[in-house]
Each structure stands twice: as structure tokens, then as C-alpha cells.
């Protein structure tokens, strides 16, 4: 098992948002998490990434069998957990390529691999940028600064491509993308998908799941998974809306 979330209760500022969440992810799988606004999808993503403002009240999260929650966010990242932000952060004055090289080398060092000098890394980065069809003009620019909404999302996937995580949590990476960009990003994710990694896609739209076929669809409502199924569940949701599953949750 790559990721195992057991009866997770977590919240922020004294407010409980996740109320007993269970999730199991194996290598090679793609999981979609859908659910109404405010149901706790980003909260789950941030708790997994280790955001310091979120508090775990109870429950367990195991990553490759080890307690993920006791690791600092940077340790989690080096172990192979990656979260693409719903709202990527701008970092003024730090160039994309400088940032990515430092990140790459930290991970390489951790795993006893060779670090890359700026020239070597540039070649590596150019190769990776093809995955999301990103022009090298974005390498020199400050991280996300002045990027359009769609460019920021693409930049997140570029980071994923560079860091090659074992587990990628993509929090609404499809929101704000135009039709072409959605296809490019989705194809990029498909390229990165392998039998050695797993992807959690947080999304509101069935559209993304046409491109990236999930193995499982989970519906999160009120801080719990209220319904699970295969990719046909997403289609059903699109037709019936969330009231349908919320009802199901209520009757549970």
C-alpha cells in the first residue's frame, strides 16, 4: 500500500473539517476525489502535504507503511509526496529554474543520486517541459509571478514532472484551464502516470476524467467519503448532482 488514511479527523483554527476519512491508494492507481465546495478536499490535500496551520485531531496516515504525519513538509516531499496547489503561490525574485534545480538536487541528495549543475539541469528541464508543452521562456521568470491562472497550473505539473513523486495530489489542477491547456495538462499527467506511482485527482469536472481515466472515484462530503465507485460514478454525479450522494450519506 502506498498511502493509507485511517479514520482521519483534522481541522483548522479549532474547526473540524475532516471527520473520519478513509482512503487507500496503491502504486499504479489513479483516484479521483470529487465533492461539493467546502467539503474538505483541499483540507485533505494540505494535511497530506503537511501544512502547519492544519491540525490532525486523530487518525493515521501511512505512506509506504510509515507514519507520514510525523514528517515535516519538506521531508514528505523528498520521500515522494507532491501536491499541486489549487492556488499556486507566487515567489517573487526567485527564478523557476533556480527553484526547480534546488528542489531537484535536494531530492537527489536525499536518495543518494547525483546532483545536477545549472547546465545539466537546464537540459533536464527542457526535456521535462515538453511534457506540458511549456516554453523555456518561463524558466527565467520568477516562480508563478505574473503567470496567468492556466500557466500557473501548467507550472505545477512541470514541477511534478521534474520531481517525479511517488504520490501526486493534484488539487483542482483542471480549474481555470482552457480546452487546449486541459488536454495538454491531462496528457502530461498521463505521460507521468506509471506502475510505480499513484495520482489523486481532486476535481469538480467529469471532463478531466475523460482524459485521465481514474481507477476509483470517491465522493467527499461533510468531511467524509460518502460514496465510492469506478469512473462511471463521475458520470452519474454529473447527471444527478451532489444532493444525490449527500442523501445517501444521510441515510447511512
Amino acid at each position: 500500500m502506498l498511502l493509507e488514511v485511517r479514520d482521519l479527523h483534522a481541522g483548522i483554527d479549532g474547526k473540524e473539517i475532516l471527520k473520519g476519512l478513509n482512503l487507500q491508494v496503491k502504486k499504479g492507481e489513479v483516484h479521483a476525489i470529487m465533492g461539493p465546495n467546502g467539503s474538505g478536499k483541499s483540507t485533505l490535500s494540505k494535511v497530506l502535504a503537511g501544512h502547519p496551520s492544519y491540525e490532525v485531531i486523530s487518525g493515521e496516515v501511512l505512506f509506504e507503511g510509515n507514519n507520514l504525519l510525523e514528517l515535516e513538509p519538506d521531508e514528505r516531499a523528498r520521500e515522494g509526496v507532491f501536491m499541486a496547489f489549487q492556488y499556486p503561490v507566487e515567489v517573487p525574485g526567485v527564478s523557476n529554474s533556480q527553484f526547480l534545480r534546488l528542489a531537484y538536487n535536494q531530492k537527489a541528495k536525499h536518495h543518494g543520486q547525483d546532483e545536477l549543475d545549472p547546465l545539466e539541469f537546464n537540459d533536464y528541464l527542457k526535456e521535462k517541459a515538453k511534457v506540458v508543452e511549456m516554453s523555456s521562456e518561463f524558466f527565467k521568470r520568477s516562480v508563478n509571478e505574473g503567470f496567468s491562472g492556466g500557466e500557473k497550473k501548467r507550472n505545477e505539473i512541470l514541477q511534478m514532472a521534474v520531481l517525479e513523486p511517488k504520490l501526486a495530489i493534484l488539487d483542482e489542477t483542471d480549474s481555470g484551464l482552457d480546452i487546449d491547456a486541459l488536454r495538454i495538462v491531462a496528457e502530461g499527467v498521463n505521460t507521468l502516470r506509471s506502475s510505480e506511482n499513484a495520482i489523486i485527482l481532486v476535481t469538480h469536472y467529469q471532463r478531466l476524467l475523460n482524459y485521465i481515466q481514474p481507477d476509483f472515484v470517491h465522493v467527499l462530503a461533510g468531511g467524509k467519503i460518502v460514496k465510492e465507485g469506478g469512473k462511471e460514478l463521475a458520470i452519474e454525479l454529473e447527471e444527478k448532482g451532489y444532493d444525490w450522494v449527500k442523501g445517501a450519506a444521510g441515510s447511512k
Binding site: 513538509p73 519538506d74 534546488l102 520531481l163
Partner: peptide, 18 residues
């Protein structure tokens, strides 16, 4: 910003320096 850099694997001191 700090959290963002940490989630990409930069240790705290390096993230602050950056």
C-alpha cells in the same frame, strides 16, 4: 510562500534563504 517551497523538498533554512 515558505510552505510552497517546503512542499517541493527544500529544507526550512534553504527555503528561507531562497
Amino acid at each position: 510562500e515558505l510552505f510552497y517551497l517546503l512542499t517541493r523538498g527544500l529544507p526550512m533554512t534553504l527555503a528561507k534563504n531562497l
